[in-house]
Design a binder for these strands. Sequence first.
DNA 1: CGAATTTGACCGGCGC
DNA 2: GCGCCGGTCAAATTCG
Length: 369
Amino acid sequence: MDEMRQNHNIFSMMRISSVEKREEKRELERITLKTENFVMANSTFITPPPTTPSDFVHMPNVFSLSAPPPPPTSSIFDMMPCDISAGGDQKAGSLGFMDLLEINQDFGASASLFDWFNQNPIVVSPQQQQSFVPSTASPVLETSEVLNNPATPNSSASISSSSNEVGEDALQQVKAEDQEEEQDQDKNKKRLKPKKRSQKRLREPRFAFMTKSEVDHLDDGYRWRKYGQKAVKNSPYPRSYYRCTSAGCGVKKRVERSSDDPSIVVTTYEGQHIHPSPVTPRGSIGFLADSSGFGAATSSFVIPQPHEYQQQHAYLYSPSPSLSFTSRFSPSFLHQEKRLESPPSLLRDHGLLQDIVPSQMIRKEAEEE
DNA sequence: CGAATTTGACCGGCGC
DNA sequence: GCGCCGGTCAAATTCG
């Protein structure tokens, strides 16, 4: 486990809307791949310690597509191809990969990310998800597909109510219909019997990570079962689909390798684990065991943050007050180093934290002000 | 032998 | 309506 983990270095992540317009999705993917050109060109990321993904970057799923990508640098921060202020999916999202990374979090007054989520239920209605207008609205939104996950006791499902009831009704109706149809068609072989698919699929919040790894399927402490693989358009590399093997847990993830840079793996989580990680990595507890960010988080990780990093995060993720979620949420992804037992200087020696404060970033900050 | 993976078919949404 | 495409299913196959 640790060994595998050490071979993976997450250098970016982005949040992905659960209800994406295809256009947005394609653009997102395009940009996602583009980012690889900006990332850590000089870094090898072979053996980061388990707690080193200091190059974690939070990226809202809806980028400012018009924003030109930054020039290539070796900085993890410079790679961000988007204007965070463009808003984006502000739902609470998946964080499970943090488990793998043993990343510590700090959510201000909250004892943990999970606590923070509990205190700040963030969900997005499909309408809101589709528009994603950078707004000054509170990140706390109403109704979410998240709520449609019947097996998500720890999520903010309590807000959902009506949508859930409707969903259950529909499900029962669909089930009844399925029974009838299956009786008629069960003699048919493969794939001819209609399944519950007739129910409109409701997407869970998605959360994507870009990692630099030679291994496609990153070990994040959960057990996954591969259920599909598809060729990716414009890419020689296939996309693999995995599902959490725990009973009742509908978390999925898909893994694909960048066509531009085969060393880069894009892992997208969807849904929320309803169970703790079956494999609890050393020093990993609490919400980290939940890849969705909502689930079975119980512990707290409140570790003093280096002031300098907070400043960076403020710059990176809260260019506007409207991003209260993002600005509070995402910076913590950059705080993995908080938990490091070794000082940052050590990491720099390994090339892990170098350029953590790129000069270019500082310039940008000055420009924006 | 059970679990996991592979893989081609199928489903459903979406754009034209 | 049709075709494309992402996502899923499930039988067949492989693996441990």
